[in-house]
Write a protein that binds this DNA or RNA. Structure first.
Length: 563
RNA sequence: UGUCUCAUGGUGUAAUGGUAGCACUGCAGUUUUUGGUACUGCCUGUCAAGGUUCGAAUCCUUGUGAGACAACCA
């Protein structure tokens, strides 16, 4: 495990954005200054797709000695809430990033307003009183030019007066908008007199009722970048068509030698994973999940509670890269990232999920032996822990088979198997109820084969885990599978996505037992158990419930979960 | 029948005119006190057709396919 680090690492090739940034620095664009921003709208929780953007925005600043602001793009008060503002900050911090400054687009409302007024005075904007339907009709289609609004040549003074009114409350929502006067025949639809301002009567989570007229994304984003001093405005591919407008707005007023540049990269898509905020909100509101941080959700909080570490998310993002190709990443790449990280760091513990009683017929009735188990087989410095061993144990139901096929390495009658960290035992039989279900398994232990004794080196094909019946604790176990059962949910756009929910995404199993010392191991964040998978204690958890996570980990994994 | 963008193994991503490599997945094997881990090997690729060139994944042309854009969302 240590020589892994000794391997000389081949220098990682730069992605296209890093290459661009290095070129910009060399050529002295914006005096070689690097400033980025992460601009979420506070209308939902951050998900793994945002993590990709976060790693880019903060990562570029970190790598090239620049700065990165966290800017809340809060220009639509009807959808935004303080709850989201707080959650977003927590998630970014959990990922390990620090913003240079925290800001809000709403802080620039006055500047944007003044700028809009200037646009009107310059004859570059006008108040349109048409309905949105009328405006949509005259906008044309991507293949046909649009036609001019009857208000397009409205005198500047009139527009100015009406614009003031838009912000006093006397104009109802939808009655008028401020539009930029550009080109109704432009091949880029965004140039056909885009809306700059509209009326929203919903109070804003920060500015209250101070404003009634709110800027649209296109009029706000580039300007905010400019006001802040952003040099590299990085966003996802769907904003590509907006870039000419982004530049056009800036061209209208910027007169310094500085200007921000927008660059787009591909957004994250993962198989079996829905990342639409709208749909996630619906899952939460309809109670189909327990909340935004339900472990089945692709949110940062959900992944955290499912046992993902910040390091695993970083390594995942690192592996998928940034291009302009709209990729669909296999979820196994994400899963391998957490396995890799936990395998290295996680402490191994024992737990039996689907227990069946194993009785060692020749073991003294009241004897308790403390068995020593390593915490991490790949890391000696991780230490050891003790597990109580008794005559009556629980083993996994599927670790025993009465009529076993040849390739079955675990427990079967007349065959030897090793109890991990304890003795080699030989199965002698089992007991069944009337229905034929196995209720108990019997075996004899070999006292000479306790772990550490010379005899224990005997070759035995199988090794199984166990817990002492007397010392075990019952636990609520939740088994998580994928929330969706279609490979690419985005292909099912027309379907109600709820039809795509996997009915097995959450299975509660109350029969599980865990060994007692787990209860006292609150200081440990991560646990791993090898054949069954990986354990993780939810850092938010206070209860002793366990969550079984089927997707993460080798085949299965566990997360301790709060009630 | 518009504008813009993209196309490399099953998936994702490198190679920036000079040996098509890496990771994930899958399949084999070695080691193993869990069938895990670790290590080794294997499978599979430049969308197509032309052109430029000593040499093309890379440059040019045409075609094909995919995506984005017609919200008073961001």
């Amino acid at each position: 495990m240590t020589d892994k680090k000794d391997n000389q690492e081949t220098p990682k090739s730069l992605n296209f954005i890093e290459q661009m940034v290095e070129k910009d620095i060399q050529e002295g664009r914006n005096n070689g200054r690097i400033q980025t921003r992460f601009p979420p709208e506070p209308n939902g929780y951050l998900h793994i797709g945002h993590a990709k953007a976060i790693c880019m925005d903060f990562g570029i600043a970190e790598k090239y000695n620049g700065t990165c602001n966290l800017r809340f793009d809060d220009t639509n008060p009807s959808k935004e809430e303080v709850e989201y503002v707080d959650a977003i900050q927590e998630d970014i911090q959990w990922l390990g990033y620090k913003w240079d400054k925290i800001c809000f687009t709403s802080e620039y409302f006055q500047q944007l307003w003044d700028l809009a007024v200037q646009f009107i005075k310059d004859g570059k904007a006008y108040i349109d009183e048409q309905s949105s339907d009328e405006m949509a009709k005259q906008k044309g289609t991507p293949t046909e030019a649009g036609t001019a609004s009857p208000f397009r040549s409205r005198p500047m003074e009139e527009s100015l007066k009406l614009f003031e009114k838009m912000n006093t409350g006397e104009i109802p929502e939808g009655a008028m908008v401020l539009r930029a006067k550009i080109d109704m025949a432009a091949s880029n639809m965004h140039f056909r007199d885009p809306i700059m301002y509209r009326v929203v009567n919903h109070p804003h989570h920060r500015t209250g009722t101070t404003w009634k007229a709110y800027p649209m994304y296109d009029f706000a984003h580039g300007q905010s970048d400019y006001f802040e001093g952003v040099t590299h405005s990085l966003c996802t591919l769907e904003f590509e068509v907006h870039r000419p407008l982004y530049n056009w707005y800036i061209d209208q007023f910027a007169n310094s030698d500085y200007r921000p540049y927008q660059t787009e990269f591909n957004r994250l898509n993962i198989t079996y994973t829905v990342m639409s905020k709208r749909k996630m909100l619906q899952l939460v509101q309809e109670g189909l999940v327990t909340g935004w941080d339900d472990p089945r959700m692709p949110t940062i909080g959900g992944l955290r509670r499912r046992g993902y570490t910040p390091a695993s998310i970083h390594s995942f993002i690192d592996k998928i890269g940034y291009t302009k190709y709209e990729a669909l990443n296999d979820v196994s790449l994400l899963e391998s990232s957490i396995r890799e990280d936990l395998n290295e760091k996680a402490t191994r513990v024992s737990a039996v999920i689907d227990p069946i009683k194993l009785i060692l017929t020749n073991y003294p009735e009241d004897q308790v032996e403390m068995m020593e188990a390593v915490n991490n087989p790949g890391d000696e410095t991780a230490g050891k822990h003790e597990i109580p061993f008794t005559k009556e144990l629980y083993i996994e139901r599927n670790d025993f088979m009465e009529d076993a096929p040849k390739k079955f390495f675990r427990m079967t009658i007349d065959k030897e198997v090793r109890l991990k960290s304890a003795y080699i035992i030989k199965c002698t039989g089992c007991k069944k109820d009337e229905a034929g279900n196995i209720t108990e398994v019997y075996a004899e232990y070999d006292p000479q084969t306790k772990s550490g004794m010379p005899e224990s080196n005997r070759k035995v094909k199988g090794t199984i885990h166990w817990v002492s019946v007397e010392h075990s604790l019952p636990a609520e176990v939740r088994i998580y599978d994928r929330l969706f059962n279609v490979e690419n949910p985005s292909e099912e756009k027309e379907t109600d996505f709820r039809d795509l929910l996997n009915p097995d995404s959450l299975i509660v199993n109350t029969a599980a037992r865990v060994e007692p010392w787990l209860k006292n191991a609150k200081h440990m964040e991560n646990f791993q158990f090898q054949r069954t998978g990986y354990f993780n204690i939810d850092p938010d958890s206070t209860a002793d419930k366990l969550v079984f996570n089927k997707t993460v980990g080798l085949k299965d994994s566990w997360t301790k979960k709060n009630s």
